[in-house]
Amino acid sequence: MKLPDSLALVKAHRYKWIAIAIVLIALTALPLLIENNYIKHLLIMACVGTILGMTFSMLFSAGLITLGAAAFYAVGAYSSTILVMNAGLSFWAAIPLTLIITAVLALGFGAVFVRNAGVAFVIITLIFVQVVVLAVAQVEFLGGWGGIIGIPRPDPIGKVNFATKTDYYYLILAMLLLTIVVFNALYSSRIGRAWRAIKLSPNLAGTLGINPYRYRLLAFVVGSTTASLAGCFYAHYSQSITPGAFGGWLSIYVQLYAVLGGLEFYILGPAIGALVMTFVPEYLRIVKEWEPIITGVLLLIVILFFPGGILGTIRSPQALNMSNLQSLLKWLKVLLPHNKNG
């Protein structure tokens, strides 16, 4: 028997809020339970990864696939570094200023980029992030390939002086929660519905009076600005930045967070993906040099066999791509006897 609509809704709603409360308490209590600073560092980087993954998902929700998620992350990191170190602003003043600068830049570049949906956009963003990295590396003022070191910690607020990983953890957690609240408000409004409409059928969306260009541009600006927020944090957390840290690999990682967690889960997907991708390689004690290779193979496996990602596969196991799995098995069958004879 199905519950009446309203009753089922109330129940689902209540469970949702209970789950959210538990997760919030757990996230707040986490650093009190963990002694190991390295694990705290991994947690912090998982939060950064989640924010970046969420920006990928936001563009994806509007039917855009970006391979340049790291570009505005770099812009944010360099911008707040310059504002703090050269203009003498406090970290807290540099953040809003950086967000404004990035939003304006994203509006300018996005106005050109999002005219091209589909493959053209993928390639444009891929090239853009490389150009940003190469351009930054050529500017002496920005430290060239050597980057910038000695970036100050965020200015203390009361007793919180950012001398410990715990302080940084709470800062990035606050940024992450803010991002989640903002993104959720967008997704649950008519703006989010317009994005989905454009993704699912641009033609139909157009006949409903939705201007695909304007909504894609909005997703690009919001996504890029959010990535720059993560960049602000990263610069003052690692206290040194180099252009190399923002290269193409980072964008691939960011993409993997979203794809691995589940592309249809715009918030939870990147969170799960970033957690898994941050912690699993550590515990497998994978040699650093091998990590990109393993990451690449993992990305291929997920796309080919688990297009729904972790969450999508849990929700509906039939989302497993059986046809690809079967063709793989067929290949193995062809290959194995051949190997025996050879």
């Binding site: 519905r193 409409a197 409903l208």
Partner: peptide, 9 residues
């Protein structure tokens, strides 16, 4: 949701 999206304008 399909019909709901139609109210955009």
């Amino acid at each position: 949701e399909n019909v709901f999206s139609g109210f955009h304008r």
